[in-house]
Write a protein that binds this DNA or RNA. Structure first.
Length: 480
RNA sequence: UCCUCCUUAGCUCAGUUGGUUAGAGCACCUGACUGUUAAUCAGGGGGUCCUUGGUUCAAGUCCAAGAGGGGGAGCCA
């Protein structure tokens, strides 16, 4: 008999069907004549209640079933006599697929700390919280491809191993097949990379942007969605050494088109989650509410998870220039009362996260897109404004997460781009291919990068980025 | 990398000014219970108090170093 998923069983309106389900035991409750097992197969946050009549011959089998065991159950769907569910499965034939020794199995039918579950990341998929998070992660992955596909974008697979160290987005992981114990040297004592696999020094990519730009110069509208690697020693709840990034790159888009797309995409994705992940979001919403109750009144969120998501879908993002933002911050009461650890004084310095949070959470009380940053604090490829001081950069700032998107209109003028490359001491010879796109049929174009796990933080309301990726990679941690 | 907090039973945590045999809830085992909802009730077993060194008559408790983890900051997505 073919197995039916628990999500489908719980949805069905008819009773009396003989069906086969398989899954893992969440809890077992035994009394004299009847035993209840909550079975979950990951197809939904909800469990199917299995009802087993306790007979002498059944007792031996029941004694082997504990939380975590895997079962195959043949049974008949019946209207539940209890109040917790509409349908349940009257067991005809239970079979244990795999036992879970309760003395060793670490998960119990109780609340575990996220820190503890992180240490058993191989088992945490079996918890309500993480199964909900990873179902949502899948839905967001799918929705991203759907969004771009429906708009006529092409997905581009940019290289994971890169020979260019000019991307400038951060420290890189080196890739080599050379024997680290005895590296080959040239006559002047430097490492001889001509003997390495690619004949040159290579690293894991920190961004697919430069390659995506090349593709956009022929396909018009493209996006990448792939893994990205940063060897920064970042120890925060918002950083990973290995994460996934979405990078659209569009020919003929100026900075305003770029912002429109970023805003439309974020609202589309959040709306998609609200419409397609309702039960999981409701579970996470309640979970968060309980968590908030533990906190002192003044640290609690003003909005629940679902309210916050609905708010983002319903409200336009604020669009503010860097210069306006500095004025707002400079004149804010927080600044005058010395509440910032880094007081806002002069134009030209980068904003601290406390400043970004103030703008988003206190001043505008909604997502903010900051544009026209000083060129000194931004990357070489960003389009220079006529004022000679700023570039057409845009950062999308979200409540509690901070920067979720960083993007810009790209500099399409060959001379201006080359000047900037030289000013910033980027090796020109490594960038010949990038520069040639400006030499031959250059067009105005724009793009941005969305940190997928940061989007996940916002959509799920989880507090730590390590809990929205199955196997987090952070400094001193590559377990599993 | 910097600041700060934490580490006690399988899990979550309590442990008073340093003082006899280190506790609770959950989990596990035994028993009770006619349908439970993280079932309930009674009883039982379970400890390298993170590691090393020090202070002291006496250290889970005080001091130092180390390890692991959390929160904040920087870097960024």
């Amino acid at each position: 008999m073919k197995r039916i998923k628990i999500a489908d069983v719980l949805k069905s309106e008819s009773f009396g069907n003989e069906i086969l389900v398989k899954g893992w035991v969440r809890t077992k409750r035994v009394s004299k004549n009847v035993c209840f097992i909550a079975l979950n197969d990951g197809s939904t946050i909800n469990n199917l209640q299995i009802v087993i009549d306790v007979t002498p011959e059944m007792e031996e089998l029941l004694a082997k079933i504990h939380t975590g065991a895997s079962l195959s159950v043949l049974g008949k769907t019946v209207e539940s006599a209890g109040s917790g569910q509409k349908v349940e499965l009257q067991c005809i034939n239970p079979e244990i697929l795999g036992q879970a020794n309760p003395d060793e199995y670490p998960l119990q039918p109780k609340r575990h700390s996220l820190e503890f579950l992180r240490e058993i990341a191989h088992l945490r998929f079996r918890t309500n919280t993480f199964s909900a998070v990873f179902r949502i992660r899948h839905a967001m992955t799918f929705a991203i491809h759907k969004f771009f596909n429906d708009k006529g974008f092409s997905n581009i697979h940019t290289p994971i191993i890169t020979g260019s160290d000019a991307e400038g987005a951060g420290e890189m992981f080196q890739v080599t097949t050379l024997d680290i114990e005895k590296m080959p040297r040239t006559e002047d004592g430097k490492i001889d990379y001509t003997q390495d696999f690619f004949g040159k020094m290579t690293n894991l990519t920190v961004s697919g942007q430069l390659e995506a730009e090349l593709a956009a110069m022929g396909l018009s509208e493209v996006y990448t969605f792939g893994p990205t690697f940063r060897a920064e020693n970042s120890n925060t709840a918002r950083h990973l050494a290995e994460f996934w990034m979405i990078e659209p790159e569009m020919a003929f888009y100026d900075i305003n088109d770029d912002m429109d797309l970023a805003e439309e995409m974020l609202q589309y994705l959040v709306k998609y989650a609200l419409e397609n992940c309702r039960e999981d979001l409701e579970f996470l919403h309640k979970r968060r509410e309980e968590e908030q109750k533990q906190k002192p009144q003044n640290e609690r969120d003003s909005m629940g998870l679902i309210d916050r998501l609905e708010f983002v879908v319903a409200n336009e993002f604020a669009r503010v220039t860097y210069t306006e933002a500095i004025d707002i911050l400079k004149n804010s009461n927080a600044n005058k009362k010395g509440q910032f650890a880094y007081p806002v004084e002069s134009w030209g310095t980068d904003l601290q996260s406390e400043h970004e949070r103030y703008l988003v959470e206190k001043h505008y009380k909604k997502p903010v897109i900051l544009i026209d940053y000083p060129k000194e604090i931004k990357a070489f490829y960003m389009k220079q404004n006529e004022d000679g001081k700023t570039v057409r950069a845009m950062d999308v700032l979200f409540p509690q997460i901070g920067e979720i998107i960083g993007g810009s209109q790209r500099e399409e003028d060959y001379e201006k781009l080359l000047n900037r490359i030289n000013e910033m001491h980027i090796p020109e010879k490594d960038m010949w291919w990038y520069l040639e796109t400006r030499k031959f049929g250059t067009v105005p174009h724009s793009g941005f990068g969305l940190g997928f796990e940061r989007l996940m933080l916002f959509v799920t309301g989880m507090g730590n980025i390590r809990d929205v990726i199955p196997f987090p990679r952070t400094p001193k941690n590559a377990e599993f």
